[in-house]
Computed example of a mutant assay.
Amino acid sequence: MRVSDVLSSKGSAEVHTISPRATVRELLDVLAEHNIGALVVSDDGTTMLGIVSERDIVRKLRDVERAREATVESIMTTDVQRCRPEDPFGSLMATMTEHRVRHVPVIDDDDRLVGVLSIGDAVKHRMEQLEFERDQLSSYVSGG
């Protein structure tokens, strides 16, 4: 099982991005509009500059006056855990666990952004795997 399998099972290949010059007010609007927990920071929609998440908002804006006017660039994470489509699914889960991240951008060999996988995507995919295995074992045991 590869990261590309999880990406294709999501149903939507759309990757939401935001400019580093956008304000936190704009960031909050986009997160709420799409009901997501993080956005990739990009100038062109394909080159990743960083990622900004709900955690960044909470941790980095706690004591900032006029926090909604701050820029995304001032709170984004630039040391981003990432993966490639050909990476094993298990390594994605290990990265999320080891680095305690909830969103991992998927970058192709040309360093272009091709997707973002959330912890929810990973858990859903793993649950589907387990259900399939359970059904196969049940079928085998029952002789069907």
Rank of each mutant, 00 (worst) to 15 (best):
V15Q: 00
L49G: 07
R2G: 04
M48A: 14
V72S: 04
K10M: 12
S53M: 06
G37E: 07
Y140A: 13
E54S: 10
L61G: 02
K10P: 08
G144S: 15
D135K: 09
A94L: 13
E69G: 05
E14S: 12
T46R: 13
M76L: 11
D56V: 00
D135F: 03
V80F: 08
S139M: 02
D110S: 12
V101Y: 03
D87W: 04
P20R: 09
L7A: 00
G120F: 01
G90P: 05
V30T: 15
H99P: 01
S42K: 02
K124S: 06
R102K: 15
A70H: 06
V72P: 00
S12K: 14
Q81I: 15
V64P: 03
S138Y: 09
A13V: 10
D56T: 03
T46L: 12
L137V: 08
P88Y: 12
S53F: 04
E14K: 15
S74W: 00
V15R: 01
S12Y: 04
S42C: 12
L113P: 03
M76T: 01
G37T: 02
Q129L: 14
V52M: 03
F89V: 14
S42M: 07
D56M: 03
R21T: 13
L92W: 08
E131G: 00
S142W: 03
D87H: 10
A94I: 06
D63V: 10
T78G: 10
F89A: 15
L117N: 00
E14D: 15
V72T: 04
V64Y: 07
S74N: 06
D87I: 02
K60H: 09
E128V: 07
R62N: 09
D79S: 15
A38H: 00
S53V: 09
A70E: 09
E65P: 11
A13L: 12
R59S: 13
E128A: 14
R59N: 13
E73I: 00
G144H: 14
L7G: 03
